[in-house]
């Protein structure tokens, strides 16, 4: 019944991503640069890099995501289309979910595609690649969805960027912990199904709860 609004929402988001490629490319370049800083700043020794490769790539991806999350609702808020979204007859919760998923696909998925290249440069052991990609695929959507709540709460504020990081970064810690521990287990050729299951559980929990919180936060921000 609401297929039309979902389809038009997706095509609009994709069109914006194509028209303004900087929104997609800038976080990607940032991701590349942050990872490059670690060998330069700590040590280029391959054995040492292999140990920190997984967590470093994860943290860099997290920071790059924080940059792109800031713009999740910002442009729509500035040009007024966010208000149109909120008064549309389609359920807001669903539209918000579609928007967050499309945003994840356009800004975060390229980061995941780039991750193996950086993992190679960071000397990640061969066993770790599968775990790295799987944790990124399971973990980053959770970050997008929780970050979406923060982005919705700070959308109308002048200095939203730093504030957004301040309020949502602590909430990402469990995901980082489980992802890093899965990659570490994979490097030591151990089972990491448990960590993946925890990440998947968080993904399911986020999928069913965060769209409601984000929609509610958008209503609060619009009324401010």
């Amino acid at each position: 019944m609401y297929w039309y609004s979902i389809k038009s929402m997706i095509s609009r988001e994709l069109l914006i991503a194509v028209r303004y490629p900087a929104e997609v490319l800038n976080p990607l370049v940032f991701f590349l640069m942050v990872v490059t800083l670690f060998p330069l700043g700590i040590s280029p020794e391959p054995q040492f890099l292999a140990q920190i490769a997984g967590p470093v790539i994860w943290i860099a991806a997290l920071l790059a995501m924080m940059l792109s999350l800031d713009s999740l609702f910002k442009n729509d808020f500035d040009d007024g289309s966010l208000e149109q979204l909120l008064i549309s007859p389609s359920p807001i919760v669903m539209l918000v979910l579609v928007k967050v998923i499309t945003h994840w696909f356009t800004t975060v998925f390229p980061i995941i595609l780039l991750a193996p290249l950086l993992a190679m440069m960071m000397q990640l052991p061969d066993e770790g690649y599968r775990a790295l990609i799987l944790t990124l695929l399971l973990g980053t959507p959770v970050i997008s969805m929780i970050g979406g709540i923060g982005a919705a709460l700070t959308v109308g504020l002048h200095r939203g960027g730093v504030l957004l990081s301040l309020i949502v970064l602590p909430l990402f810690i469990p995901i980082l912990v489980f992802s890093a521990s899965a990659i570490e287990a994979a490097n030591m050729i151990m089972q990491y199904d448990g960590q993946l299951a925890m990440l998947a559980a968080m993904l399911v929990l986020a999928l069913v709860t965060t769209p409601f919180a984000t929609a509610f936060a958008l209503k609060i921000s619009i009324n401010n």
């Binding site: 929780i146 709540i149 923060g150 709460l153 700070t154 504020l157 200095r159 504030l163 301040l166 309020i167 949502v168 602590p170 909430l171 919180a213 509610f216 936060a217 609060i220 921000s221 009324n223 401010n224």
Partner: peptide
């Protein structure tokens, strides 16, 4: 988490809006 709530509280000028935003953040 406390710092986040305090920062959000001080960033929003509208008192009742700030309270509702912080309420949502503290529940999350």
């Amino acid at each position: 988490l406390y710092f986040g709530v305090i920062a959000l509280q001080s960033a929003i000028n509208n008192t009742s809006g700030a309270a509702r935003a912080c309420a949502l953040l503290s529940l999350v």
